[in-house]
Simulated scan of single mutants.
Amino acid sequence: MTTLSTPQATFAELQVNGRQHQLALDSRTSLLDVLRENLHLTGTKKGCDHGQCGACTVLVGGRRVLSCLTLAASVREPVTTIEGLRDAKGGLHPMQQAFIDHDAFQCGYCTPGQILSAVACVHEGHADTPDSIREYMSGNLCRCAAYPNIVAAVQQAKPEMTNV
């Protein structure tokens, strides 16, 4: 007879989109699964679940991370998902508006991760040229091939993001 042990719950405190959450989790739970399953923030997408497509990109402490590869219990800084991205007045963030303006999405599945990665690309100082944008956005895949429109959106949003 084989006996399987159940993992002990780990208590985690996460700040997500400005709200505090106290959770009892299996220590192996990814940030992606906590966002989608526990907090019901389904804007963050599960693509490959191996960190290769970028669909699950969120910001942790302002830096982009692949939430499918990040253990939720290890997160100590504020998390921003697509649901929490907004401008100072609570409207669309300039990057969200730029994606709309440039039709930088087709099916939309990768769009939340693309937008959050694009915000980080600008904040990291990598949005100076189209080549630089393409390089630093290369971890986010778009099966619809909206890449030229994504680059145009990043270029449009960059000067507007100084006020956000």
Rank of each mutant, 00 (worst) to 15 (best):
M1F: 09
M1Y: 03
T2F: 14
T2V: 14
T3G: 09
L4G: 12
S5V: 15
S5L: 14
S5Y: 11
S5H: 14
S5C: 08
T6V: 15
P7E: 12
Q8D: 10
Q8N: 13
Q8A: 15
F11N: 12
E13R: 14
L14K: 04
V16K: 06
N17I: 07
H21W: 14
Q22R: 15
Q22P: 06
L23S: 13
L25F: 08
D26L: 00
R28P: 02
S30A: 06
D33I: 01
D33R: 14
L35R: 10
R36Y: 05
R36I: 09
E37Q: 15
N38L: 05
N38C: 05
L39S: 03
L41I: 13
G43P: 14
K45Y: 05
K45A: 02
K45D: 06
C48H: 06
C48F: 04
D49I: 03
C53K: 11
C56L: 07
C56Q: 03
T57G: 05
R63Y: 02
V65L: 08
C68W: 01
L69Y: 00
L71Y: 05
A73S: 05
V75W: 01
V75F: 02
E77I: 01
E77Q: 15
E77C: 00
E77P: 00
E77H: 03
E77S: 05
P78R: 02
T81C: 12
I82H: 01
G84I: 05
G84P: 07
L85T: 11
D87E: 08
D87C: 02
K89T: 13
G90V: 10
G90N: 04
P94Y: 00
M95Y: 13
M95F: 08
F99G: 10
D101W: 00
H102T: 11
H102L: 01
D103L: 09
G108Q: 12
T111Q: 08
P112E: 10
P112V: 09
P112N: 12
G113M: 07
G113A: 09
I115H: 07
L116A: 11
L116V: 13
A118L: 10
V119L: 05
H123C: 01
H123F: 00
E124K: 04
H126P: 04
A127N: 01
A127R: 11
A127G: 13
A127V: 09
T129D: 08
P130F: 01
D131Y: 00
S132D: 06
I133D: 07
R134S: 10
R134Y: 00
E135A: 14
M137D: 01
M137P: 03
S138T: 13
G139Y: 07
G139M: 04
N140S: 10
N140D: 00
N140E: 04
C144L: 11
A145F: 01
P148I: 09
I150E: 07
V151I: 14
V154C: 05
Q155R: 11
A157G: 14
K158D: 09
K158V: 07
P159R: 10
M161G: 10
M161R: 12
V164N: 15
V164Q: 12
